[in-house]
Design a protein around this nucleic acid. Structure first.
Lengths: 290, 290
DNA sequence: CACGATATCTGACTAAAGTCAGATATATGC
DNA sequence: GCATATATCTGACTTTAGTCAGATATCGTG
């Protein structure tokens, strides 16, 4: 009853019935689940028919019929793709937006109901994040983004908060050499966010300089996503981007209060070098030749 | 993207696709899911046809046909219930047990595969326990059990381990007044285990004495099940059992290093009294008149 | 502009799940 | 013993999901 496998299977059972309950509440809107799923995919911004079909794993014949039934209900309109008239693009009509909102309300109510009934919602959410990240590890995408985007700023906020907790003296970003956003955009550098579904769960910045090297900054992995090898993936993607940009030498600084970071750098071909800047926080410095 | 509801919904999506993958692997055995589910319910010890139907939420006509198809495959046998010939009882044949074992192997392999791919399996399991307990809170049953049963001994082991962590001086059960199992069995007392699915997640003992009162001992709630009001439910069930046994006065001892316990007792009608035993661990004593 | 590739649609099908109205056998209370 | 309730079964149905083989329109390339 207590071995790991039984615990996973208990979790599976619990979750299967919860998922089934949500499906049942969706059926309450008088539409088969297949059609509801397509409507929701469109509502969530997937407009390209091929993309929806791929996302939901549907046969093209079935997909076609589901679209037709939503069209007959007056919930969607389809038009030819503007660049390629073979492809179709679906979008919600006014009635479709209303219906989509009703599904959203059902989903939200289910989620809220679940949270409301628990006195330790934060612990529950952390557990959910952890499991969701683990289950979707193969679908984590690394996307280059503007360092000023909402996703990037969220990651940076979490990163600073974590440094504040882990550094004995705390962390005040205004005392650190905060990189200029322009230095972390192409062509000088880049900024990469790891996205799991719609949630940012990690980031890294490549900051161009005028000193013959670029710096890696702001490597962060959300607590819920640790143990998935994401730090390594982010570093690898940054090095690839640096090569594309013609960068030959990378440097970075870190702090010995973050031992897992130092370990990652040592294991992936970085060598320790003397201090190369006067930032007050780091006490360890590395470089890697590409 | 970061509000609690979105996080729950992200979890739902992640889990839905994982559950779907397990269903697909079940289909690999060449039997529709409905029949597979009935076979598995029987394999897991549900023999009464009405009980299976209720558990799986099936229509009686559909249930009957699914049973017939499993019978035609030679996997189950049905007989009349011995007390009521209207009811039927299903059990696995030898071939049925083999087939059930194959499904079990698929489930186990899926669970193992999931755990193997993660470097922090223990954190993942703790998160799964937490969520499973939260999702099944309405299905937590309180069962009177022998204090020597495997379930009870598991709970007690966890309870002692937790005291060891939380008491500054540690906890050695041999130094404490370990109640005799016979005192926690009817008619002198009882022992109640809270079961969530097949996992024991809490316990409490009612220990009969010859001093005109009974004692409540070993109240424990698994970390993953805290915040669900289970402590209160266990206490309530014990008081009910005590009344049935004709007990008029209850006492208990606890330690101020367990503040949530003291709080629970104060909030549920217990009053603090002077020390009434010489156990070295407790420093707080309560009683309640029934 | 011909040709093969691609995206979608249509028709014709099957399998699975679920519904519903009786039929049958047995149990329970008066 | 009889009326009523209960558990299961059977037959006749519908809906949903999914499959597959073309048909049709459009695209990209030489």
């Amino acid at each position: 009853m207590l071995d790991p496998v039984s615990r996973v299977r208990r979790f599976n059972r619990a979750v299967t019935s919860a998922v089934g309950a949500l499906d049942t509440s969706f059926l309450g809107r008088g539409r088969p689940l297949g059609a509801a799923r397509v409507l929701n995919a469109i509502g969530h911004g997937r407009s390209d028919v091929a993309e929806i079909r791929d996302y939901l794993g549907l046969d093209s014949g079935l997909m076609s019929r589901l679209l037709r039934s939503l069209e007959d209900e007056g919930l969607i309109e389809t038009t030819a793709h503007e660049d390629d008239a073979r492809r179709r693009v679906a979008k919600l009509t006014r009635a479709g937006r209303r219906e989509f909102a009703a599904y959203e309300a059902l989903s939200n109510a289910q989620a809220e109901g679940f949270l409301d009934r628990h006195s330790q919602a934060e612990a529950l959410l952390a557990a959910m994040d952890l499991i969701a990240s683990a289950l979707t590890r193969d679908r984590i995408s690394l996307d280059e983004m503007d360092p000023r985007s909402a996703e990037a700023r969220y990651c940076l906020g979490e990163y600073y908060a974590e440094l504040g907790r882990r550094f004995k003296q705390g962390f005040d970003v205004t005392l650190s050499r905060d990189p200029d956003a322009a230095d972390m955009r192409r062509p000088r550098g880049t900024f990469i966010v790891a996205m799991s579904d719609t949630l940012p769960i990690g980031c890294v910045g490549l900051k161009g300089t005028d000193h013959g090297y670029a710096e890696i900054k702001r490597l962060w992995v959300a607590p819920a996503a640790r143990g998935l090898g994401l730090g390594r993936r982010l570093m690898h993607a940054t090095e690839t981007a640096a090569r594309e940009l013609g960068i030959k030498l990378l440097r970075l600084d870190t702090n010995s209060a973050l031992p897992e970071a130092g370990q990652l750098y040592r294991r992936t071909g970085w060598s320790e070098i003397p201090r190369f800047n006067d930032d007050p926080y780091p006490d360890l410095f590395f470089e890697k030749r590409l």
